[in-house]
């Protein structure tokens, strides 16, 4: 267990210095597809924050209380993906019953999230880095918020860019990647503030 790292250090590092999207490239697919409007990005962002926090906690429990005692750690990929898919499905059913407004805001994004690599990535990182339960919880929360910050900033820039003239071959994905590159450069300014491995 990495006792030395405080949970708040992990939390801030996950948002700024080790942003899951801009330094680990996870969650690019939905990032490029959805980041056209700020409103939808906020919706997807909240859904990711919620699912990421909850699944990193659930997967920590599943890994340390089921897989490790039974010596089945090589099955973690299957277990993690099933936990994520089942959790997303249950949450979707619950919000559908409970609140129409929440369902309209988040419901359509939930199926997208199952295949978001960032969610699985957070769970895998947490296992490789040997985080404690609290650390994993805050790592999930921080990564989710970091992802949301990145996608909202991206959507804001892309909305402004709608009227500018982009070279034909770059329009769409190409220019989005260049913006992501410049954002990654900007986030590198935070590096050195907090160090986690």
């Amino acid at each position: 267990m990495s006792e030395g790292i405080a949970f708040y250090a992990i939390f801030f590092a996950a948002i700024f210095t080790n942003n899951i999207l801009l330094t680990n490239y996870l969650g690019m697919c939905s990032f490029l597809a959805v980041s056209r409007e700020v409103n939808t990005s906020v919706g997807l962002g909240w859904a990711v924050v919620f699912v990421m926090t909850a699944t990193s906690a659930l997967n920590w429990l599943a890994y340390h209380y089921i897989l490790v005692p039974l010596d089945l750690t090589y099955l973690r990929y299957v277990v993690f993906i099933v936990v994520i898919a089942a959790f997303v499905q249950i949450v979707e059913m619950i919000i559908e019953r409970m609140s129409d407004r929440l369902y309209i805001a988040l419901g359509i994004f939930l199926p997208l999230i199952t295949v978001n690599c960032a969610i699985l990535g957070v769970s895998l990182f947490m296992v490789i880095r040997n985080y404690t339960f609290i650390n994993s919880l805050f790592f999930g929360l921080g990564s989710g918020i970091g992802w949301m910050v990145a996608i909202i900033a991206m959507a804001g820039i892309r909305q402004k860019m709608a009227r500018s003239r982009v070279p034909k071959g770059l329009a769409g994905a190409g220019i989005a990647l260049i913006i992501a590159g410049i954002m990654a450069l900007a986030f590198m300014g935070f590096s050195g503030m907090i160090k986690i491995s």
């Binding site: 801009l22 330094t23 490239y25 770059l170 190409g174 220019i175 260049i178 590159g181 450069l185």
Partner: peptide
């Protein structure tokens, strides 16, 4: 050193997409 860090990957892929799309067009 920027090329082995995150931004380098984004820029390289973007330029690749640009070239390929240009050729296809």
């Amino acid at each position: 050193s920027i090329m082995v860090m995150a931004p380098g990957a984004f820029f390289t892929l973007a330029i690749f997409i640009w070239i390929v799309k240009g050729v296809l067009d």
